[in-house]
């Protein structure tokens, strides 16, 4: 059976996904401020990376095996910090875009990056807890 092209448009249900959100001014302010602080923290991570890079160069200059080991350790920490900073900034952008565009899809992107950041922090905090317990024992 063919559809009648002259038939009036029928009311169809909205797609359950991808509909606009309506955020209050307060909500927009909170998320905007959250994104600013998240970016601020990521900037400190980059500052930490710069100091670690200087330390790694200083350790390499010694030319000893211990120096190379220290530089390698610093490089791993730098990699972790850069990754954390990127995820933090992406999460901030996702939340901000989600609020300004009133779209839950970009909010979901923000949560994806926040989850990645929290997984990294979770692994670090579990390792830290383990080392503290080992120190006590």
């Amino acid at each position: 059976m063919h559809d009648n092209p002259f038939a009036p448009p029928t009311a169809t249900a909205d797609s359950p996904e991808g509909r606009g959100l309506v955020f209050s001014e307060e909500g927009v302010r909170v998320v905007s401020s959250l994104a600013t602080w998240m970016r601020g923290l990521s900037t400190f991570y980059y500052v930490g990376v710069a100091f670690l890079a200087l330390g790694a160069c200083g350790a390499l200059v010694t030319g000893s095996a211990a120096g190379v080991g220290v530089a390698l350790g610093f490089s791993i920490v730098m990699l972790g910090l850069i990754t954390a900073a990127i995820w933090l900034r992406s999460a901030a952008s996702g939340f901000e875009r989600g609020v300004y565009s009133d779209d839950e899809m970009t909010l979901g992107q923000g949560f994806r990056n926040l989850r990645a950041y929290l997984i990294l922090m979770g692994i670090i905090s579990i390792l830290s807890l383990g080392s503290t317990i080992l120190e006590v024992m």
Partner: peptide, 27 residues
Amino acid sequence: PFTEEDERRIASAATWGVIVAVSSLAT
């Protein structure tokens, strides 16, 4: 109306948040 995948991500982010908070508190 989050997608199911996004809801899973949010729940997972929340779980990891709890893990970070509890382990940091314990430390």
